[in-house]
Design a protein around this nucleic acid. Structure first.
Lengths: 241, 241
DNA sequence: TTGACCCTCAAGGTCTACTTGACGGCCGCG
DNA sequence: CGCGGCCGTCAAGTAGACCTTGAGGGTCAA
């Protein structure tokens, strides 16, 4: 319940890389110094440094590392996905949590900016989302979705299908039509913001750099989505009382 | 257990490998004949064969293949683990069931509009998120977070702490200061929208109704967050070409 | 019989996740 | 101050997972 707050500065709890390694090797036998450094190289960690360049890991850093190793060992997640999960704050730092209702909820990589490319026919999408034809038309008119015309048929990708699903649900609550513009314009504005930041790299002729930029974009998107979510909650809490 | 095939009609839907491939390439664009053969090589499939050696896939085989591909794409499981899951009968072969009463249980990152619960001291938050004091001050000045003053100390709730964390990460990418206003104003606008819809119920004197309204608010917030996320991805895909 | 499809098997490619080694600097203790 | 034990970067190498390719040849249905 009450959060005990300690007064004095018990800061100073930072460890060197070797100490971290020793501390974790009981729980994760295949840890190593080089591996920890590698994880940093992959942008999964960012410990602070001493003047001389030594890495110093705070308890928070160590906890983050523990989470990374657990996701890797128990959930088999690739580092690229772990990075996004962490950026989006979607990873529970709790370890000894009580029963998880579902051992493994579907976790569809939620920030796949490079599309997988699966396409769905219109009827399939309608069936699947419970939307009606008029709604889809409306969304197309608003330019929210576009579909891909191919020999007389329209196909939608998975993001579009999910958009249709979400909008259908919102409609059941009475959010529809022009109200959706609120969402659209804010998304557009954020995209513009992110583009502005990454524009040079995205247009680089060096494919290496472009790949990095797309990855950064995915990470930024994950964090941005998370932030928006949090801000909305913050607003709604005020509302709810 | 002879492989006697009766003349009876309701069977005989076996497909050749090419046909299977064609059937699945909509849902799984990176499927290929060689990949299907590889999966068999890895003991994940065992279709029956014609006298001449051709593989013949029953509907059950195809379903199994679909499960494999889904576990691989959505759950990131390595083939070794998928093989075990299948052997243990632990994989759900059902996907196309239309009997979902509520279209979809949304259980994404929690939308706990009520109950903040724990409070965290400033130092704790700084330690934990890697933020610096100036950033927190800035966020307070912008009115994004507020903290709770209590006998000379400032405390933050978990949402605020996560906001600080997210903003800190964004900053590492070069998103800072006035750019954050984009996020803030869009969150505010959405909150206003949701309030407008639920205002009567929220202000009701009937506690039952108010409770319902808060629940609806949480649902709406979850869907709205998801939608924003999808829209952002849609925009970014265009960006990333 | 013919052309599209399928077979196996060996070799090779690409990607992720590290490890190794060379060369050198930092840190604290006596 | 100097010594031994950690720590730093960087380039190169390794191991395994997951497929693809290509050669050489057989099967199937019209």
């Amino acid at each position: 319940m009450s959060t005990e707050v300690q007064e004095s500065p018990p800061r100073q709890k930072a460890l060197t890389i070797g100490a971290v390694c020793k501390q974790l090797e009981r729980e994760f036998p295949d840890i190593s110094i080089s591996k920890i450094r590698y994880l940093e190289d992959q942008k999964l960690l960012a410990p602070r440094r001493t003047a001389g360049g030594y890495r110093l890991y705070s308890p928070g850093d160590v906890q983050r590392l523990r989470t990374i190793l657990r996701l890797q060992r128990d959930e088999f997640l690739p580092l690229r996905v772990i990075r996004q999960e962490l950026a989006a704050g979607r990873a529970d730092p709790e370890v000894a949590d009580k029963a998880t209702p579902e051992p493994r909820a579907l976790r569809r990589s939620s920030v796949a900016v490079r599309g997988p490319g699966a396409l769905y026919g219109l009827d399939e999408v309608l069936e699947d989302t419970g939307a009606d034809r008029a709604l889809v038309k409306e969304l197309e008119d608003y330019g929210v979705i576009k579909g891909e015309r191919r020999d007389g048929e329209v196909y939608y990708d998975d993001t579009e299908r999910e958009i249709i699903r979400a909008v259908t649900e919102l409609k059941r609550f009475g959010v529809g039509g022009r109200n959706l513009r609120v969402f659209r314009t804010s998304a557009d504005r954020e995209a513009a913001l992110l583009e502005q930041i990454l524009a040079p790299a995205l247009r680089s002729r060096n494919p290496e750099r472009r790949k990095e930029a797309v990855e950064a974009l995915e990470n930024l998107a994950a964090i941005a989505s998370h932030l928006k979510h949090l801000l909305l909650i913050r607003d709604l809490r005020k509302l709810a009382r």
